[in-house]
Each structure stands twice: as C-alpha cells, then as structure tokens.
C-alpha cells in the first residue's frame, strides 16, 4: 500500500466544479423540461443559464489547462487492455482479480475511461454547449429589433439538448458507481478530493518505474 499524487489542485477543482454544475444544470434543466417543479420555471431558467455560463468559462480554462500541461494525452484512445478492462468489470471484479490497467500520473485512465471521457469531451459536452447556446441565441436582439439565426423553432435544438441531458445523467450514475471499484471502496473518491490515491504495491512499483522512465526521457 502506497500513496501516489495523481490529481493536481486544478484538476480536482475542475472536476468538482464541473460535477456540481452538471448536476445543478440537470436539476434546473429537467424543471425547464417540465419534469417537476422545484425553483419555479422563471428561476430555473435564470439559474440554468447562469450555471451554463459558469460551466462554459470553466470549460475554456480547462481546455487551456489540458493543452498547457499535456494532460490531453491522457484521453488518447487505446485498444490495449480494453478487452481485459471490460472482462474485469464483467467477471474479474467478482473474483478479486487484479485491475488490468495500472495507474500512474502518466496514465491515470483505463482504456474504457479514455474512450468514455474522450466521447464526453469531443461529442457530448460540445453538443450540449452548442445546443444550449443556440437555445439562448437562436433569436437575439440587434439594433433595437429581434432577429433570428433563420431557425424558426426550438424543436431540434431542444430535443437534442434533452437527449444529451439524459445521456449525461446516465453517465453520472455509472461513473459514481464505478469510482467504488478502486483499491478500496473510497480510494478513488479520496484521490479526487486530496489528489493522493492509495494504490496496490504492484501498481505503485509500475508507476514508479514509469516515473523513472519519464525522468530519464526528460533528462535525455
């Protein structure tokens, strides 16, 4: 048992802010959808729009962070171990089999996470942001008149946004469950809060080896 520093301060801030915002957007969004009444429609709209702007600012900062730190490489998809990772969740986990993918600061994500998070980053979140912005601005005020983007109704925009919201919520459910599948039930959660994750010796050894390799590459 050893502790490794996996998640930087910004990464944790980003993760939790985004998590809170997505849940809050879902809460207000499904009220706007008419699923229930909580804040009142008008308040829900204002809260939803404001939260959306904060999320957009966060996303812009985070895109910057990904590129300046090179962390974007974490999301490069790989087929290596993908089958093993799926097999682990389907059978291995019940037999106390070891995690097929070893964690390190260079490779924090298993192949399944890589695929899913990449999908969020390049497909689902952009679709939500774009449809959300269209929802707000398919009509806009210009020179004292209301003009439009040539879109006459909200149907396609709203339906896409709603479908995206369901998909994101489903992701959150599965995601929140899968974080309990670390070394202990809470080791992943603790890691995302403190930055330090408890890893099995074997995992750490591999991580240290990778760290060393990384250092040797840098020193070269």
């Amino acid at each position: 048992m050893q502790k490794v520093y996996l998640y930087s301060r910004y990464e944790r801030f980003w993760h939790w802010t985004q998590a809170f915002l997505i849940l809050f957007l879902a809460l207000t969004g499904f009220e706007i959808h008419g699923s229930y009444r909580m804040f009142g429609f008008e308040n829900a709209v204002h809260l939803h729009n404001n939260a959306a702007w904060i999320l957009i600012v966060l996303i812009i900062f985070t895109i910057f962070w990904h590129f300046t730190t090179g962390e974007w490489r974490q999301y490069l998809p790989t087929a290596e171990n993908l089958r093993a990772q799926i097999a682990y969740y389907v059978t291995g986990i019940f037999r106390n089999a070891p995690h097929p993918t070893k964690k390190s600061s260079l490779s924090k994500l298993n192949p399944m996470q890589r695929l899913v998070y990449l999908g969020l980053k390049i497909l689902f979140i952009p679709v939500m942001v774009i449809t959300g912005l269209l929802y707000m601005f398919y009509r806009y005020q210009l020179d004292g008149a209301i003009t439009s983007l040539g879109i006459n109704n909200l149907n396609l925009i709203a339906y896409t946004h709603t479908l995206g919201a369901y998909i994101l919520l489903a992701f959150v459910i599965v995601h929140v469950y899968l974080i309990t599948t670390g070394h202990t039930l809470t080791s992943n959660l603790k890691a995302m809060i403190t930055g330090w994750e408890e890893l099995e010796e074997e995992e750490v050894e591999k991580a240290v080896a990778i760290e060393e390799k990384k250092e040797s590459i840098q020193s070269d």
Partner: peptide, 29 residues
C-alpha cells in the same frame, strides 16, 4: 401547435428512451 414550448412540449420517444436509459443505468449498477 407547431412550436416548442419549454416545459409543455415533449418528444415522447426521447423521454421514454431517456428514462429507460436512466433506469437501466441505475438497475445495472
């Protein structure tokens, strides 16, 4: 008819699919 009125207008297929997906996700975990 003919316009999307937020909170009133729904697309039955999207809502069924969405809720079903959430139920499956919940039941699955």
């Amino acid at each position: 008819e003919g316009i999307y009125i937020p909170a009133q207008t729904t697309h039955a297929a999207i809502d069924y699919f969405g809720i079903l997906m959430l139920l499956f996700a919940g039941a699955g975990v």
